[in-house]
């Protein structure tokens, strides 16, 4: 099956400022794809390139088998978009805007529209200028989710929603997934991404630093081990694959590269294991790793850069 989105080596400069440099992003058909990165990493710029609103400086981009710049209008029949900062026509009501956008796109599922308005507790009779940020976002979400688009591009769609509405959004996302729609979801709510997304791409400073399934990403990151031992084996201190080791009497905490798990467990067993907890990194761990490196230049992306090279092999 061909990819819904395939971006390779995308760069974009505004004058002398380079916003995207060598960005890769691939979203399979029917996949819910998380698109993550710190503020200003270039997520919205990438999305605007995908929508054909801005022209890439270089790179090859295929969207639903077409070129987002030259085939913009045709492609947009199959795309629904929720902007990160939703602006609406202030003198139209929410209901009018939902209907208008649907008609411009070429139709909507009226029953789903009404159901979504109810689920998101939106008052469609209010003029857009009186809506709060969250309510404007709901208008855009109802519009996108009730469309018949093949691809949903959602740019931080829940940043203004309350936790209840965020849960409603997650349910909707699950429904979209089972209905076979492709979703590109840019978000800062990691639990949302973790719960809904098949694959994730993390970008930083306009460059892809991680991409793959959550399981793959976890494989590339150290697992945390917490063990209570009878005695602490001396090799633990000598092993180069054991990181951040702390020993508190007989309780040992450390981080281990996934491919060395087996060997490290053998060492621990020698000390006599009384209790053992091992947990993979959460998305938050993965994320913070990159966020905290954000001070470093893009050229030396730390081990994140190596990871993405690994993944180019492992993910395909």
């Amino acid at each position: 099956m061909s990819d819904a989105v395939d971006v390779r080596g995308l760069t974009k400069s505004f004058g002398s400022t380079s916003v995207l440099s060598d960005l890769n992003l691939s979203v399979g058909s029917g996949e819910v794809h998380g698109f993550l990165g710190p503020n200003g990493a270039g997520k919205s710029t990438t999305i605007r390139v995908l929508l054909g609103l801005i022209r890439p400086t270089s790179g090859t981009i295929s969207l639903l088998g077409g070129d987002p710049w030259s085939d913009a209008v045709e492609l947009h029949r199959r795309i629904a978009y929720v902007p990160g900062d939703v602006t609406l026509w202030p003198n139209l009501t929410g209901g009018e805007i939902i209907d208008l956008l649907a008609r411009l796109r070429g139709g909507l599922d009226a029953a789903r529209r009404d159901a979504l308005i109810e689920r998101f507790e939106l008052d469609p009779q209010k003029k857009a200028r009186t809506y709060s940020t969250g309510n404007r976002q709901k208008v855009a979400l109802v519009s996108a989710l009730s469309s018949r688009a093949d691809l949903l591009i959602l740019d931080e769609p829940t940043s203004g929603l309350d936790p209840l509405m965020e849960r409603t959004f997650r349910e909707c996302l699950t429904e979209e997934k089972s209905a076979g729609r492709t979703v590109l979801l840019s978000s800062h709510i990691l639990s949302e991404v973790e719960a809904a997304c098949d694959r994730v791409t993390i970008i930083r400073k306009g460059r892809t630093v991680e991409t793959g399934t959550l399981a793959q990403l976890r494989h590339l990151t150290r697992t945390t081990i917490e063990a209570e031992l009878t005695t602490v084996p001396a090799q633990l201190h000598a092993d180069p694959d054991i990181h951040d080791l702390t020993v508190e009497r007989t309780t040992v905490r450390c981080q281990v590269e996934p491919h060395r798990m087996d060997a490290v467990l053998r060492i621990l067993l020698e000390g006599g294991v009384r209790n053992l907890v091992a947990h993979p990194p959460t998305l938050e761990d993965l994320f913070l790793e990159h966020y905290q490196n954000a001070g470093a230049g893009p050229a030396e992306a730390g081990h994140g850069g190596q990871h993405s090279q690994h993944l180019e092999r492992t993910a395909r």
Binding site: L53, A72, P83, V86, L104, R105
Partner: peptide, 12 residues
């Protein structure tokens, strides 16, 4: 920002 909403539909 209205142009982003409008031009993301099949409007040239």
């Amino acid at each position: 920002g209205l142009a982003f909403v409008l031009l993301a539909t099949p409007t040239s």
